[in-house]
């Protein structure tokens, strides 16, 4: 869950930065009015928040699985004789 939210946050920032970068290279018009610019930015933010959220959640889940497996292997069995 935390991985998804964190990834979505990163994706939102990524979307804003990418939209501004594309504008810088002359493919988007942010100058004429604020509504057009906001529509573009919101689309980018939503799309990349979803993508990064999914990726972050998957990565976090996999890392947690690894951590659980690692913890179980290091402290799972008591010493012999007890």
């Amino acid at each position: 869950m935390a991985g998804g939210a964190s990834g979505a946050g990163s994706g939102a920032v990524f979307g804003i930065a990418l939209a501004l970068l594309i504008q810088q290279f002359g493919y988007l018009d942010f100058s004429s009015n604020l509504v057009n610019a906001l529509v573009y930015i919101i689309i980018f933010v939503l799309v990349f928040a979803i993508i990064f959220g999914i990726i972050g959640r998957a990565l976090r889940g996999r890392a947690l699985k690894k951590l659980e497996a690692s913890t179980a292997s290091t402290s799972g069995s008591p010493p012999s004789g007890y």
Binding site: S6, S10, V13, F14, A17, L21, R60, A63, T74
Partner: peptide, 25 residues
């Protein structure tokens, strides 16, 4: 300057997401 900042920001965010999969024991 704006482009450089934006590109660095993009790289940073990709790194942040990639770092979610790295969890040290």
């Amino acid at each position: 300057i704006v482009n450089i900042v934006l590109i660095l920001l993009l790289i940073l965010e990709i790194y942040e997401v990639a770092a979610l999969g790295r969890m040290k024991v």
